[in-house]
């Protein structure tokens, strides 16, 4: 016999939407949406990720293809920005050399919080095909900046990058964002 109290089931996203619709139906007039402020903020942040256009090597070409007509990342609110100060997502697309690493770090520091990093391709993840006998490539971008999502592949197809962004959105949606900000300020 377990002494632990039964855990409440974790509401999935669909379930919470359904619950919201339920509440709406019961209210007179039904034009009022009740939700957690945090959920709303997270939803907004997740649906408008603005990445820094920051191509390093071959993977950047696939990233460009993902922004272009057929794959069209604009659909999910991903619009490339040219400056780190307007961006909240950094897609490290391609291999990063030791000469480039301090610059990647500085760009990451210039981005405003909250910021996220996607490491695209096996080079950015771990050095990839340039791991052995190599004197100039950084063996993984996570040595200099923290990474949220790793997208494997050499190069990852644009679909894989989109999947990575969707995974990041899932992560953003469940983040205790407000609580952390308040705690940090207190």
């Amino acid at each position: 016999m377990s002494t632990q109290p039964p855990q409440p089931p974790v509401p999935s996203r669909l379930a919470s939407i359904a619950a919201a619709i339920d509440i709406l139906d019961q209210l007179p007039g039904g034009n009022l949406i009740l939700t957690k402020v945090e959920y709303l903020l997270n939803w907004g942040r997740a649906a408008s990720l603005w990445p820094l256009t920051f191509g390093l090597a071959c993977c950047a070409i696939e990233m460009m293809a993902a922004f272009a007509g057929r794959f069209d990342l604009d659909r999910i609110g991903v619009i490339p920005r040219a400056t780190p100060r307007q961006a909240d997502l950094m897609i490290v697309a391609g291999r990063c050399t030791i000469k480039m690493a301090p610059i990647v770090r500085r760009l990451w520091e210039q981005m405003p919080e909250p910021k996220y990093v996607i490491s695209m391709g096996s080079c950015a993840t771990c050095g990839g095909p340039f791991y052995y006998d190599n004197y100039s490539i950084l063996k993984g971008i996570d040595q200099v900046v923290p990474v949220d999502v790793y997208v494997p592949g050499c190069p990852p197809r644009p679909e894989a990058l989109i999947e990575g962004i969707l995974k990041l959105q899932e992560k953003i949606k469940v983040e205790p964002f407000l609580r952390r900000t308040v705690a940090a300020q207190a």
Binding site: L56, T97, K99, M100, F130, Y132, S136
Partner: peptide, 11 residues
């Protein structure tokens, strides 16, 4: 230049 020097010739 040299920000993408991947040491291919050595490898």
């Amino acid at each position: 230049i040299g920000y993408l020097h991947s040491s291919v010739e050595k490898m």
